[in-house]
Structures are given as C-alpha cells and as structure tokens.
Simulated assay, not measured.
Amino acid sequence: MGQFRAYPYTANEATGHFKFQSVGKRGIIDKAIELTQIAPDIYNLALLDFDPVTQDYVDDSITDNGDMPEVLATVMAVILDHLSQFPRSSIVITGNSPSRTRLYKIAISKIGDDIKHQLKILGYQRSGWRIFEPNQSYESFLIARNLVD
C-alpha cells in the first residue's frame, strides 16, 4: 500500500486471528484482524483492539495512535495473505461506523495497480453490489481474487 509498510503479524489460521502491534503516539497497542466465516468461502473482516480491562479483543474502540496508514496496510496484507491461501474465498468488510467504513474505502483505494488487477473489488450501496470506484460512498466492501477458470 504505497510507501507505508504493514506491521509484522502472527497468524492463527485455526481461529482466524492475525495479531500485530500498533506503534505510535499512544504507545504500543495490541491489535488483531479477525476473519470469521459467515458462509461457504465468505469471511467477515473485523479490526480489533485488545482491551486490557476485559482481556478481550473489541471492535468499538478508537485507538488514535497516529499510525492509521500502517494499520490499514496491515489489514490489506492480511487480506492478500488470506486470498493467496484460499483463492476461492471472498472477504466482506463493513465498518462499525461511517468513519471506519470511510477508512476502509481509503485503504482499498490505495491498493497498488500491481495488485489491483489480481482482485475483484466490489462496494455495496443500497441498490446492490457494484464495481468499486474510489469516489463513491459504500456501506460495505467485498474483495476476492480475480479468478480465471
């Protein structure tokens, strides 16, 4: 994703968790990307923060650690890693707020042309799924490999 590098992450394919650490102005924050199967070959993506109080990962916190480009690059790296291992799968991304959905749109918009041709990227609007265009607003996104049978 452009000049920003993804954080190193550890993958636990059994649980669908990809853990990494955000490093920024608020210190080091444990984060995870969770891929949950919601239908055959379709996975939902959630970006989570570790809550030290509950000792669990939650999706409703705002980290504001000043490293959003790196976090989004990490999300895209996990998506590409998953799709390379499971080429017939699709990943659905829906932000839990309009601002988080907008951040996902920004991340998807910054996918390099060298990778974009390998992917099918759709955005959901009220009228249904459409080919993703960076200047449109969407409620959710679907990313899959561009397979040629």
Rank of each mutant, 00 (worst) to 15 (best):
I131N: 03
I79W: 03
D64E: 15
K25F: 01
K120G: 07
H17L: 12
A6F: 02
Q3C: 01
G95M: 10
R145L: 08
E133G: 03
V78P: 00
A11D: 05
I121M: 10
P87Y: 05
Y7E: 07
T15A: 10
D81I: 00
F4H: 01
R26D: 04
V58S: 09
H82I: 05
S90M: 07
G16Q: 11
V75L: 13
T15N: 02
A144R: 11
G27S: 06
F86A: 13
G112W: 01
R26W: 00
I111K: 05
S89T: 11
S84W: 07
D149V: 11
I115R: 12
Q85E: 14
D59A: 13
F132P: 00
R126N: 09
L83W: 01
Y9I: 03
A73I: 04
V23F: 00
G112I: 03
M1D: 04
I33N: 08
F141D: 03
A144H: 03
T54K: 13
L122R: 01
I143D: 01
P134A: 15
E133D: 08
L47P: 03
R88C: 06
D41M: 15
L103S: 08
A14E: 14
S97N: 05
S140W: 05
P52M: 09
I38R: 15
Y9K: 01
L80N: 12
K19D: 15
V71Y: 00
N44D: 15
F132K: 00
N65D: 09
R100F: 06
G95D: 07
